[in-house]
Structure formats: structure tokens, C-alpha cells
Design a protein around this nucleic acid. Structure first.
Length: 283
DNA sequence: CAATCAACCTGGGTGC
DNA sequence: TGCACCCAGGTTGATT
């Protein structure tokens, strides 16, 4: 669940609450994060910006160092007043000025927290694909990053080096919107299909963001609240239910080890829609 | 380099 | 109620 819309929702609240505030204390409650203390001193630093790149959150400090957090599947980053109730999954606590606590909680202990300097942060950014909601991400660019890829379209959408921020939910939702079968070859999209997928990606992500993200079980925003987008999902976890577009029956298959939901009727494996795209455009 | 898959952890749900 | 087993939103390192 923490995919782009969920992580961005968290980032927006953090921007409201902690920018400009100084770190006054840090408590590490998970030995996996023990090396943070040796790497760089956080106490005394001011939070200058809160960034998001793909599914990564970053707190940019006033000395150029960056505290980076990945929620993975079950992580939460909560802003709470000092002395808020106990949380058995609390892994890292950062106190900031004005009596606030930034709590990183993670039931499954998959999440990651790291410290990097400015150069490392730039290098990290270069390893990820384009931001799908940015102006530079066009249908042409999408087709470019997919070019030559033999893997399934669904798998390619999950590859963060190709596009940053899409996860299992929004990949399925984007493919449904683009009327593309998840097992289509990533490199085999026509220009028209790439256009459809591009729109599908942006639409799914924007709607998800507008709804405050998707909550199935673990995801919470930085205020501790659930998202609402699970109510609007078109295919994800709707196996056996009717397609809202064509009344076909939603199927579940496994692609690259990930559960994948689609409508076999309006997301055909064969490529008739590509042909009609082309004929529709020919002049 | 590209593609695939097991591994990382823990809790919740299901079926017996 | 107890227990074995399966499943889960992501990333990455090993392997082919």
C-alpha cells in the first residue's frame, strides 16, 4: 500500500507539521537502525524540507544530510504529540521542537531508515525512474522506458528503475484504465497503447492521492488515519466481481510472483485494440 | 545488462 | 482453542 499516493499523503502532512523544526531527541528501538547514530548526529539539526521520490520519503536537514525512510509494506510514519499512547511496533522515535514526536512504526520490520549526505542523496535519485506525476513524464517517455523490454507489462510497471512509485495496487488499476492485459510484453506497446497506459497511470495515481491513499490493513497516514481509495478500486482485490466497464468477471493471476487483477474481457491479451488505435489515427 | 526468484519479518485469516 | 499453512502493499542480492 505505501505506494506513491500513500507516501505523498504522508509527506504532505509532514511538510505541514515539521518543516523548520529542530530535532531535540532520537530513540532507536530496533537494533537494525543502530548504525544511524554513528553515521551522523541528528539532534540539533533543523528539518528544512520533506521530499518524496518514488516510494521514499526524505527529511532534508539544514546541514545537507538526509534522513530517508521507506515504509515498505507495513511501515507508518506518525506525527504525535509528546507522550502519546504506546505503540508496540515503534522502531524509531524522533522528538522535534514544540512537543512533537515523529514515530516510525513497523509491524513487519521490513521498512528502512537511512542517513545519507547530499551527494549520496543525488546518486540515489538517479537510480530511480521518472516521477509519473511530473510534467516530464509523457506517453512518449513511457514508451521509451519500456522499449526493448521483454518482461510482462505488469512487472515493468513495478520496476522502480523504469518508473518510480507504482506498486501492486496502482499497477493493476493503471492497466485496467489503459485496457491492457498485464501479460502484454512491456516493449511491445504501440504509440496509442502507451498513450492509454500513460493516462491510466496518472489517473489511478491522482485519484488515489485525492482519496488519501488505499488502506487494506496496515497503511495509515501521518495522522494515524486510513485512506479511502480501497472503495474506488476497479480491479485490485475484486476477483470474481463484475467489471465496472463491461460487466466481465475480474480474474486473479500471478505475474512475477505478485497477485494481479484484471478484466479479461476489456483487457484482452491479443491486440485488437492496438490496431483500432492505429486505424483511428491514420491519415 | 535483463529477467527471475528466494529471502527478509510478522501478523492475520483459514481450514482442520 | 490450538496449530499448520498460506497470504500480504516492496526491495534486493544471487543466479541464470
Amino acid at each position: 500500500m505505501p505506494e506513491l499516493p500513500e507516501v505523498e499523503t504522508v509527506a504532505r502532512y509532514l511538510r505541514e507539521m515539521v518543516i523548520g523544526k529542530r530535532v531535540v531527541g532520537v530513540e532507536i528501538l530496533d537494533e537494525r537502525f543502530a548504525e544511524l547514530e554513528e553515521r551522523h548526529e541528528l539532534v540539533g539539526r533543523r528539518v528544512e524540507q520533506v521530499g518524496r521520490r518514488g516510494k521514499y520519503l526524505s527529511l532534508v536537514l539544514d546541514d545537507g544530510w538526509v534522513l530517508q525512510i521507506h515504509l515498505m509494506m507495513a511501515g507508518r510514519l506518525l506525527v504525535r504529540p509528546e507522550g502519546w499512547e504506546e505503540d508496540r511496533f515503534l522502531r524509531l522515535l524522533m522528538r522535534v521542537e514544540d512537543g512533537l514526536e515523529l514515530r516510525f512504526c513497523d509491524m513487519r520490520r521490513f521498512g528502512r531508515v537511512g542517513l545519507m549526505d547530499a551527494a549520496e542523496y543525488r546518486a540515489f535519485g538517479r537510480r530511480l525512474g521518472p516521477e509519473p506525476l511530473s510534467g516530464g513524464f509523457t506517453a512518449v517517455r513511457l514508451r521509451q522506458v519500456m522499449k526493448g523490454r521483454k518482461t510482462a507489462l505488469k512487472s515493468a510497471l513495478l520496476n522502480q528503475k523504469l518508473i518510480a512509485g507504482i506498486g501492486n495496487i496502482y499497477a493493476d488499476e493503471a492497466l485496467w484504465r489503459g485496457r491492457l492485459h498485464p501479460l502484454r510484453t512491456a516493449g511491445g506497446l504501440s504509440a496509442g497503447e502507451a498513450q492509454r497506459l500513460h493516462r491510466g497511470i496518472r489517473k489511478a495515481l491522482r485519484e488515489g492521492l485525492a482519496a488519501g491513499g488505499t488502506t487494506f490493513s496496515q497503511y495509515r497516514n501521518a495522522e494515524g488515519g486510513a485512506g479511502e481509495y480501497q472503495r474506488e478500486l476497479r480491479v485490485f482485490q475484486r476477483t470474481g466481481e463484475k467489471c465496472f466497464r463491461c460487466r466481465g468477471v475480474i480474474e486473479r493471476i500471478v505475474v512475477g510472483g505478485r497477485s494481479t487483477h484484471f478484466c479479461p474481457r476489456c483487457q484482452p491479451e491479443s491486440d485488437e485494440s492496438a490496431r483500432s488505435d492505429r486505424s483511428g489515427r491514420s491519415r
